[in-house]
Amino acid sequence: MEIDSTGRKAVVTGSTAGIGRAIAEGLARAGASVVINGRREDRVAATLRELHALFPKGEFVGVVADLATPEGAAELFARVPDADILVNNVGTGRPKPFFDIADKEWIDLFELNVMSGVRASRHYASGMAKRGWGRVVFISSESALAIPKDMIDYAMTKTAQLAIARGLAEEVGGTGVTVNSVLPGPTNSEIMSGWMKAAAEAQGITQEEAKQQFLKTLRPTTLLNRFTTTEEVANLVVYVCSEQASGTTGTSLRVDGGVVRTIA
């Protein structure tokens, strides 16, 4: 199967590092023009330079905007009024005991992880439906299904994404627009690598040992027995954004290394 997204414009939020960066590269490799987004101008500029070096004939636009705010979303929409593909990737999380999470932390995380995707989908998916083709993907997490007790706030936002994606798929059903969620498991992303580095330094072990310890204690059901790569996650996303995935909508697709022990 050869995926060709030539002529499609893709917006990938939070795409200067980690899974978002890998998705941007994967879509560019498939021929799409890609909009890079991040909160820091230096990181957006660096990502654009890297992608231009990899794909000299590629088309890229960089938008510096904080999508956790309505103002940031408005900046993105002003710079990029329409798109054929939207990947709602921007988000974050951190381990913290439930009883220590303040109200503002819940709200701030919801604004970034959930409302960014709500605003972007509301803006771009309506245009996709009018044109008769489009792809919307929410980057959720296996934590949406297997709630980790040390990241309940994060899991809540990821479960919310599943509900939004399914509901939006119902809304645009029959228009040629598909809406899906992709659920990564433990991945060698920038955020996770930072956590593993800190854990390794605190315990005087290697990062690989820290990863194995994480898997054994917190994700013992893994079937891969390793973290997935950002490219492995991106591969599934690039497919879901393709013409070949026209029959897949309203569903959640896992690339979690088998962590979630369900068959549905």
Rank of each mutant, 00 (worst) to 15 (best):
T178D: 05
A202T: 10
K197V: 11
S189Y: 02
S189I: 04
I164T: 03
G185T: 07
K216T: 14
T206H: 09
I205N: 02
K211E: 15
S193P: 00
G173A: 15
I164K: 02
T206I: 12
R219E: 12
E170G: 00
E171V: 09
L218E: 12
E208F: 09
P184E: 07
S181A: 15
V179R: 01
T206S: 15
V182F: 06
L168T: 03
Q207K: 14
Q212E: 13
G204K: 11
R166H: 12
I164S: 02
R166G: 10
K216Y: 07
E209G: 00
I164G: 00
I164C: 02
E171T: 13
A210Y: 05
S193C: 09
L168Y: 04
S189T: 15
E209V: 09
V179D: 01
S189R: 03
T187M: 06
T187E: 04
G167M: 07
Q213Y: 07
G176D: 12
E201F: 05
A165G: 14
T178R: 10
A199M: 12
A165D: 02
V172M: 06
S181W: 02
M192L: 15
L223A: 13
S193T: 13
G204E: 10
A165H: 02
T221C: 00
A165T: 03
T206V: 10
T178Y: 03
V177C: 07
E190D: 14
L168P: 00
T222Y: 05
Q213F: 07
A198Q: 14
A165Q: 01
N180W: 04
E209H: 05
I164D: 01
P184N: 10
G185I: 05
S181D: 07
T206A: 08
V179E: 02
G173S: 14
V179N: 01
G204L: 11
G185E: 03
P220D: 06
Q203N: 14
L183F: 10
T222V: 08
V179G: 01
S193W: 02
W195H: 11
W195T: 03
Q203C: 03
F214I: 08
L223E: 15
A202W: 06
P186W: 04
K211L: 12
V177I: 13
L168V: 10
I191M: 15
G194Q: 10
Q203V: 00
I191D: 01
K211C: 01
M192C: 00
G176F: 14
T175D: 06
T217N: 12
M196Y: 06
L218D: 09
S189N: 06
P184V: 07
A198V: 13
I205Y: 09
L223T: 13
G185W: 03
T175V: 11
V177S: 03
P220V: 08
T221Y: 12
V177P: 01
P220T: 07
E190S: 11
K197W: 06
M192T: 10
V182K: 01
A202F: 08
G176R: 11
L218G: 00
T217V: 10
T206F: 11
E171D: 11
K197E: 15
E208A: 12
Q212K: 14
I191V: 14
M196F: 14
K216V: 07
Q203F: 01
M192H: 05
K216E: 15
N188I: 04
A210T: 06
V177R: 01
K211F: 07
